[in-house]
């Protein structure tokens, strides 16, 4: 699924790296606990979260993720947006809740990630 399709499915609005919206992603994860995200491995490229701080972007950077979706209309600060822009990460916001946002993407073919055993 292309990042711009995620935007469309979620009625979301991309705020950073608008030149990277045609990149393809194959898996996603949803969590508010960054340590849990860091415990996953492999190529989940999209993080859906209700947590909004700079460490969300850093976690995505460490995991080589391409896109962060802030759910429930959470508004990232300029500092967060700048960090994502500098590091090539697309940030988008949606008014959908976590469960709904994940369900919509999943039912449209974006799978979860393997858990590192």
């Amino acid at each position: 699924m292309k990042i711009c399709e995620i935007e469309k499915h979620l009625g979301a609005k991309a705020l950073t790296c608008l030149g990277l919206l045609d990149r393809d992603v194959t898996s996603a994860c949803g969590s508010d606990m960054m340590s849990d995200v860091l415990a996953f491995v492999k190529d989940q490229a999209v993080l859906l979260t209700g947590l909004v701080n700079a460490q969300v972007v850093r976690t995505a950077m460490m995991m080589d993720m391409l896109c962060i979706v802030f759910v429930r209309n959470k508004k990232p600060t300029q500092e967060i947006l700048d960090l994502a822009e500098e590091n090539g990460i697309v940030i988008m916001t949606t008014d959908k809740r976590m469960y709904d946002a994940c369900g919509i993407l999943y039912s449209n073919g974006l799978n979860g990630a393997d858990i590192n055993g």
Binding site: D32, M33, S35, T49, N53
Partner: peptide, 17 residues
């Protein structure tokens, strides 16, 4: 700390992994 997304007790296990 948990409300900031950390403190799940996975840090040291992740570092080992």
């Amino acid at each position: 700390v948990r409300s900031l997304g950390f403190g799940a007790g996975m840090g040291l296990p992740n570092m080992k992994r």
